[in-house]
């Protein structure tokens, strides 16, 4: 009796986990910031490919919502180049978010300035913050025509 119950429980648990993994993957594909294409992100932003010439100045990016709070950045453009990225708001919901934001933002900022684009890799351990940060950068770059 007992052994059978344990076996049923173990197999049932594995089934629950397998289903959960599938469902989680599906939900994630539908929800991740990269998946829900915002209109701003669809326009190409490769330097040089843009038709309109870049304007100097500060460009405020879109507010991106994550489960850990909103993210918004301002991109400073001078001489057609990204010279700075200023975080206006970073993920701050949940105990570790502030720490992670403070850790990830400088890394993302220098990566964006170095590559002159929003197409840089996420900071590991701060996936949500990274994705939202880069989306906001991209929308600012779109406004700047970069």
């Amino acid at each position: 009796m007992r052994a059978r119950a344990t076996a049923v429980g173990a197999v049932g648990s594995l089934a629950v986990l397998a289903v959960a993994w599938q469902v989680g993957t599906l939900l994630d594909a539908g929800q991740s910031p990269g998946g829900t294409a915002s209109p701003a992100a669809t326009t190409t932003a490769t330097p040089g490919a843009s038709a309109s010439p870049a304007t100097d100045g500060s460009f405020v990016g879109a507010v991106e919502n994550t489960r850990y709070g909103t993210v918004q950045v301002k991109v400073v453009v001078a001489g057609g180049k990204i010279t700075d990225v200023v975080a206006l708001h970073l993920t701050d919901q949940g105990g570790r978010s502030v720490q992670l934001s403070n850790y990830a933002a400088p890394i993302l900022r220098s990566a964006v300035i170095k590559s002159q684009s929003a197409k840089v890799s996420n900071v590991s351990g701060a996936t949500y913050t990274s994705k939202a940060y880069l989306l906001s950068v991209q929308s600012a770059l779109d406004k700047a025509g970069l």
């Binding site: 007992r2 344990t6 429980g9 173990a10 049932g12 648990s13 594995l14």
Partner: peptide, 9 residues
Amino acid sequence: VVALWLSSA
């Protein structure tokens, strides 16, 4: 017993 397993899952 099954409930104990499933709750962990």
